[in-house]
């Protein structure tokens, strides 16, 4: 037997750069905000655009957060995720139309209650749909990426057609609840009330997701499963059940995002989820597959970038987020906060 001395570990002192490195993605958001302030001469316009960008980012986060977990944990490329956004929007809008008395009343409490019911309805519907989608469409193609792309895109098309069958081919216009219409003025800037609600809701959902992932055992299993599902199973956890739970939760979150996105645009269509998928994919990729924090930061960057560039150079707005994705992937090829090392 070796007579080598005891192994004596020491804690090395990290340099400032090493300590800052993990926070660099987080710092990108304030950096972009400051860049916006420098580029936009009018402070009130900048403030309006910033709140608008944050609100847009929060809604993209709501829609994308489920997809990043499904990507990371299940290694499933789900092009059908947009279907949950569309269905959520339609169910939510239907509930709001049924609750016309509550949404038309000039009472914030009644308006928020109506929205709450719409969100619950949408999340229940899309959660149930997610369960069926996973069982029927995704389960047979685990481990086969090409098949996943084809079959989930097929699923998306089927769901879009079902929406047309159920709600008709026309877009449905919806006005926001009475108390959430209009804007408040702050420091000379007009801040839309609905966008402030979207920012608040996004923050609450992000905090809840983060708490669940960081502070609960189920969150621990999900995070570990994103890294090494095989080992999680060898520790005694039924990852298959966790997979299904995450898929359902991700679908329900997409439904929530769909309601908020529909009210944001004040119109819903069968194809709205499909259209949002471009932004959702950008956010998931630049955030790092499987990373909720990365998804959150990525969504804020995309929302802010879109609003600033649309104001400064409208023609460039369409490609600005593609440029952002290219820049971030050149800096960090696995995304800002990579979780999945290799699959």
């Amino acid at each position: 037997m070796s007579m080598a001395p005891e192994h004596a570990p020491t804690m090395a002192r990290l340099s400032l750069a090493q300590r800052l490195a993990p926070w660099m993605p987080v710092l990108l958001v304030p950096l972009l905000v400051v860049a916006g302030l420098l580029a936009i001469p009018n402070t009130s316009s900048w403030l309006t655009l910033t709140v608008s960008g944050l609100a847009m980012g929060m809604m993209i986060f709501l829609m994308a957060s489920g997809l990043t977990l499904v990507f990371g944990l299940m290694d499933v490329i789900n092009f059908g995720h947009g279907a949950f956004v569309s269905v959520g929007a339609f169910v939510g809008v239907s509930v709001l139309l049924m609750l016309g008395g509550m949404t038309g009343a000039p009472s914030l409490a009644l308006n928020l209650a109506a929205m709450g019911l719409a969100v619950i309805g949408a999340m229940l519907a899309t959660g149930a749909m997610g369960w069926a989608f996973e069982k029927v469409i995704v389960k047979p193609v685990y481990g086969h990426h090409l098949k996943q792309i084809l079959v989930t895109m097929g699923g998306l098309i089927v769901v879009e057609q079902l929406i047309i069958v159920l709600w008709g081919p026309e877009e449905i216009y919806i006005s926001r609840p009475e108390a959430l219409k209009g804007a408040i003025t702050f420091a000379g800037a007009a801040l839309e009330k609905y966008r402030l609600v979207a920012v608040g809701l996004g923050l609450v959902v992000f905090a809840a997701m983060r708490w669940t992932l960081r502070r609960t055992k189920i969150g621990l299993i999900v995070r570990a499963g994103v890294e090494n599902g095989e080992m999680v199973q060898a520790l005694g956890y039924r990852l298959r059940l966790v997979f299904v739970g995450v898929f359902i939760a991700g679908s329900a979150l997409a439904g929530l995002g769909g309601v908020m996105w529909g009210l944001y645009q004040e119109v819903v269509s069968a194809h709205m989820g499909n259209q949002a998928m471009i932004l959702i994919f950008i956010v998931v990729i630049i955030g790092g597959l499987g990373s909720v924090e990365g998804c959150f930061i990525g969504a804020l960057l995309v929302g802010l970038m879109q609003n600033y560039v649309a104001f400064l150079e409208p023609k460039v707005a369409l490609i600005s987020n593609i440029g952002l994705m290219v820049a971030i992937l050149m800096w960090r090829p696995m995304g800002m906060i990579p979780v999945v090392k290799a699959k």
């Binding site: 299993i221 570990a224 080992m231 520790l235």
Partner: peptide, 16 residues
């Protein structure tokens, strides 16, 4: 080894 690199030592043990 199959350790979860993004989890702390404590979290790895709690999971185990």
């Amino acid at each position: 080894m199959g350790i979860f690199a993004n989890l702390t030592v404590e979290e790895n043990m709690v999971l185990a």
